[in-house]
Amino acid sequence: MLNISGIREGYVLDHIKAGMSLKIYDYLKLGELEDGTTAIIMNARSNKMGKKDIIKVECPVDSIDLDILGYIDHNITVNIIKDDEIVEKRGLSLPHEIRNVIRCKNPRCITSVEQGLPQIFYLADEKNEVYRCRYCEEKYRGK
């Protein structure tokens, strides 16, 4: 059994769909954390999911924007740790706006040519989890 020690302050992201953890590592820009250590556990056994990934991040709380997690998979469990204790289990919901995380793939969109433009998507249909580019309204299909 692989053993990774607990963390003093930071996050434990549990119940990540197996294989998704590296994508989440990129989306959350964990590699750019100045004051943080990340452990990625892949294909851990799970009674609920069969196999799952887990990410543990030792970092000051509130140094990561977790809104995007709701977009990636709102079934992920977010545990917030302080002084070695779980102080909060945060539920996830679909963010109303996603900024500079995903890119518009429509070649006719202004974002394909205009430099310095933020990539903004808005939640167009919550039921079907549809996001559209704020500029050209094209549906995002890359998820």
Binding site: N106, R108, C109, I110, T111, S112, V113, E114, L117, C133, R134, Y135, C136, E137, E138
Partner: peptide
């Protein structure tokens, strides 16, 4: 008028 979609919004 612009050929790129969303240009006037920018």
């Amino acid at each position: 008028r612009h050929p790129k979609e969303g240009a006037p919004l920018v």
